[in-house]
């Protein structure tokens, strides 16, 4: 009986650790996206400040390719929209993982209590 609970506990802890790993991964991803969004926002601001006849280049591989200002603005806006949607997806994922983590933690607590009870009965 004690062994059974121990096994269950181990299983639950393993699951918890896996969820925790996913959680941290999602968090890191979120941070990266946040940074990208910030960078794109700064670029958009800078592009908006430019006059219509300003020259804009895009770094493609090792060369600078001349770009249309309007096109560049649109591209950056599109990228920002994409990053925002990604952020939303990751945020949803994080809340989901948060709930999962809590559930696992609770399960572990319960099993631990059961385990302690068993030990006390034994003693």
């Amino acid at each position: 009986m004690v062994e059974e609970i121990q096994n269950k506990l181990q299983l639950e802890v393993d699951k918890y650790k896996a969820v925790q790993k996913d959680y941290h991964k999602a968090l890191a991803q979120r941070q990266q996206l946040d940074g990208q969004l910030n960078e794109n926002t700064a670029v958009k601001q800078e592009l908006d400040l430019l006059r219509k006849d300003a020259e804009v280049f895009k770094l493609i591989g090792p060369v600078l390719v001349k770009q249309d200002l309007e096109e560049a603005k649109q591209n950056v806006s599109k990228r920002m929209d994409y990053i925002r949607s990604e952020l939303k997806r990751i945020d949803d994922m994080i809340t989901g993982l948060d709930k999962k983590q809590d559930a696992h933690r609770e399960a572990i607590n319960k099993l631990q209590q059961q385990f302690q009870l068993m030990q006390m009965k034994k003693a």
Binding site: E39, N40, A42, V43, E46, L47, E55, V56, K58
Partner: peptide
């Protein structure tokens, strides 16, 4: 260089 690969003159 203003970021994300964009350069402006």
């Amino acid at each position: 260089d203003i970021g994300t690969g964009y350069f402006i003159q």
